[in-house]
Design a protein around this nucleic acid. Structure first.
Lengths: 208, 208
DNA sequence: GTATGTGAAGACCTTCACAGCG
DNA sequence: CGCTGTGAAGGTCTTCACATAC
């Protein structure tokens, strides 16, 4: 996971990319000041982050929007599409399956898994739900690169073991638990309760 | 937002709390080494984090599980419940409304909002969906402390303005956009596409 | 002996401030 | 003149290592 771009910068690149997409279509250049303002980041930070891409801004003018977007997409590896699998088709898994927001960035949901026989075989978002028993085989067959875990906490580790067993090295975990994975595997955690608890701290802290 | 506890520590406290809850019921003490292993954190980090709580571990033994959990809950302000409102009852908003995982931590969903007249008046997760027009009034009436934004990107800023207008200072944002808020307001961003793009970077980076 | 609590070191990240270029 | 690119300064966070306490 050794990278030439600092982790903190990597985490901001998608934000820049989105913010650039939100600009008026006729805006061809954008200064670090301006991009920073809409991305919620200091302008020096923007310049330093962008400098890691090797992109050249134009002094006195700013960055060329189209070029910078291309550079960001390329740096993030969004040029080739990735196949995504979702495990756990409950409330959240179903919402994710139906969410169209990935496709625009080249992420393609190619498999859904659940352990409940009542759900297996049903269709969600145009995809057939498969039994988690066939996870490894199907993940390999369909060339899945990213696994999304949307199961209850107690099923998450087992699903992840199967994902990694099938060779996956990228996991997005929505289950409220900390996953144990080999260090070659990248995990991003998204946990609702954790976020609410953090907000709770700052509420309390500011004297509510 | 000035706090005596570092932000990085605050972000880990909920994880510790959850991990302690996952321990066997008969385990009365836990070392920093052990807690670190299941939380995915260095043991020195655990000790330093816990030291901010003022809690005392027992040298040669570890921390008393029950006592540490109490301290964590107290530090996070989870002793009093907070009322939560969800705006945007689409796929995700509906999944969040039906998700029972908050209640156990003292978060109570007391209001749902949507701008679509077809949804207003329907029931989701036992709650009536209200028109976003009445957001400010209802938020005040019901003493909401935390606002969850699950609207499409283009509606998010307007909803947040209403939330902050009603006096909210804590926002959890699922909409794929960067919100502009007064600096007295705490925002946590949860963005699926961003997470996938970050994973994409590391996939590419490790030679996929 | 075993595990905490913590100063100090080191790594990482952000911000400043200004030289340099268009 | 305006804005980028970047060395240097200043913070913050993590890890080490060991004195300290049970």
């Amino acid at each position: 996971m050794k990278s030439s771009i600092p982790a903190a910068t990597v985490a901001r690149l998608p934000i820049y990319l989105r913010c650039l997409g939100d600009l008026a279509a006729d805006q061809s250049t954008c200064s670090s000041e301006e991009l920073g303002a809409i991305a919620g980041v200091n302008s020096a930070q923007v310049r330093k982050d962008v400098s890691f891409l090797g992109s050249q801004g134009v002094r006195g003018v700013g960055y060329k929007v189209a070029e910078l977007r291309r550079e960001l997409r390329s740096a993030l590896g969004l040029t080739k599409g990735y196949a995504v699998a979702i495990a756990g088709i409950g409330n959240l898994g179903r919402a994710l399956s139906n969410y169209g927001g990935f496709a625009g960035w080249g992420f393609d949901v190619v498999a859904l898994f659940d352990s409940d026989p009542a759900k297996v075989g049903s269709k969600v978002g145009g995809q057939r739900v498969e039994s988690v028993e066939h996870l490894e085989r199907i993940v390999k067959e369909r060339g899945v690169s990213i696994g999304i875990v949307a199961t209850p906490a107690d099923a998450a580790q087992s699903v992840v073991d199967q994902f990694t067993g099938a060779g996956l090295r990228s996991i997005l975990n929505f289950a409220p638990t900390v996953l144990q994975v080999p260090e070659t595997v990248a995990v991003r955690r998204v946990d609702l309760s954790t976020e609410l608890q953090i907000l709770s701290f700052y509420l309390k802290d500011s004297g509510e």
